[in-house]
Each structure stands twice: as C-alpha cells, then as structure tokens.
Simulated scan of single mutants.
Amino acid sequence: MMDLTELKEAIESKQYDKIADICDELQLQLAAQGIKEPEGWPYCIHLLGHIYTQDINSARFLWKRLPSSVKESQPEVVAVWKIGQCMWTHDYAGVHGALHSFNWSPEVQQIITALSDSYTKRAFELLLAAYSTISVADTAQFLGMSKDDALAYTLQRGWTLDSASQMLTVKKMPAVVDQRLHSSTLQNLTEYVFHLEH
C-alpha cells in the first residue's frame, strides 16, 4: 500500500522543493518491497518535482524510466516533460510557452504557477548578471511576457528605456559586502597593532 501523505502535505504547504525527494524515497521503499510500477503513482507530480528544483538530469532519467503506457495515456506527464526539455536546451521562450500551453489539473496547476514565478525571477537575475543593455523584445522573450508586460516588469525594478532604440538599460543591484571579520583576521590585526605599539 502506497502512503502519499507526506507528498500531499508538502504540496498543501507549498514546499514544492521537497516533492522530488519525497517521491524518490517512496519509490525506493516500494522497489525494496518488489513493487516497481505502483498502481496510481503520481508520475506527473514526481517529474514536476525534479523540474521545479531544476534538477533536469534527474528529470531526464525519470522520464526514461517511465513506462511507455504512462507516456501514451497521460498527456499531462508529456506536457510536464516538454517544460523539462525546454529547460535542458535553455529555450527560455519555450519554457514559458510549455508552462502556459496545457490545461493543467488543479493539483498540478498550483505547482506550475509557482514554477512559472520562480523561473521568471531566475531569468530576470540572469539578465541582471549578463547585460548592461538589452532590447525590450529580447527581455520579453527571456521573461516569457508580452513586450508591454516585460517593459512594466523591468521599469518597476529601476531599469530605464530608450524609447528611440527600444533598448533597456539594466539597473545593477548593489553588491552586498559581508563586513564581518573572520576571527583569524581579527587575531592577526590585533597582533600587528600590538607589535607596532611595543
């Protein structure tokens, strides 16, 4: 008998980063009991758990292990894998397209929404790190938004627009400097000052 209580609790409490580990562990426990393909296994959620944490290698191996009957009979599993494929090839627009191109079941939809939000934030952080200027069109493609939405999203975060060229100037975030001194550094400084005074 399969107990999915821990998995359901993780989903209900929006701890989506725990889904893959919970499913992997449960699958190992079932395999130890000789159950290789449990009836009613949440393949879609399991695959999405790996994709949510962007562990695309594990998602690929899980996809390869899936019975062909599941791939043929569960279009939602195939749709989830499309997201993983696009992540694997760094097709940012494709990821956003795959996230929004399927009529997800309610349980999966909440994870998809969280994945979409976190993926947009990660893409934005990549743009921050990689560009000093970028076109509105390219920004929209990376963020999976319309040009107007991408423009509003970036302007809210302090970027500026050159209307003539439709180029955005990226506002870099100030670097946070850790100003704590390591105890050995403090010790060395103390000894140095002591040496100067004596």
Rank of each mutant, 00 (worst) to 15 (best):
M2E: 02
D3E: 06
D3Y: 00
E6A: 04
K8G: 12
A10Q: 08
A10M: 09
E12V: 14
S13G: 13
K14T: 14
I19T: 09
A20S: 15
D21M: 05
D21H: 08
I22N: 02
I22V: 03
C23F: 03
C23L: 07
D24V: 01
E25N: 04
Q27A: 06
A32L: 00
A32M: 06
G34R: 12
G34V: 00
K36H: 11
E37A: 02
P38F: 07
E39P: 04
W41M: 05
C44R: 02
I45E: 00
H46F: 06
L47V: 11
L47G: 01
L48G: 02
G49V: 03
T53D: 07
Q54M: 10
S58I: 01
S58E: 01
A59K: 15
F61P: 00
L62G: 14
L62V: 08
L62R: 05
W63G: 14
W63A: 13
W63I: 07
R65N: 08
P67M: 13
S68P: 06
S68D: 10
S69A: 14
V70T: 13
K71Y: 03
E72A: 05
P75D: 15
E76T: 02
V78M: 05
V78R: 11
A79I: 12
W81E: 12
W81D: 10
G84N: 02
G84P: 03
M87P: 06
T89R: 00
H90W: 04
D91Q: 00
D91Y: 00
D91C: 02
Y92P: 08
A93L: 13
G94R: 07
G94W: 02
V95K: 07
V95E: 02
H96A: 11
A98L: 10
A98Q: 02
H100N: 11
H100V: 15
S101K: 13
F102Q: 09
F102I: 08
N103W: 15
Q109G: 08
Q109H: 15
A114K: 05
L115Q: 01
Y119C: 10
Y119H: 08
K121G: 01
A123S: 09
A123R: 03
A123C: 11
E125S: 09
L127A: 05
L128I: 09
A130N: 12
S132D: 11
S132V: 06
T133M: 09
V136K: 01
D138T: 09
T139E: 12
T139Y: 07
A140L: 08
L143I: 11
S146T: 14
D148E: 10
D149W: 04
D149Q: 04
A150M: 11
A150E: 09
A150C: 13
L151I: 12
A152N: 10
Y153A: 03
Y153V: 03
T154N: 13
L155C: 01
D162Y: 14
S163M: 10
S163H: 04
S163R: 09
Q166A: 15
L168H: 12
T169M: 00
T169Q: 02
T169N: 05
K171R: 06
K171Y: 03
K172A: 12
M173D: 03
M173A: 15
P174H: 11
P174S: 14
A175P: 00
A175G: 07
A175C: 12
V176A: 11
V177I: 15
V177F: 09
D178Q: 13
D178Y: 05
D178W: 04
D178G: 15
L181Y: 12
L181A: 14
H182S: 08
S184V: 14
L186Q: 07
L186A: 06
T190S: 04
Y192P: 05
F194G: 01
H195F: 05
H198L: 08
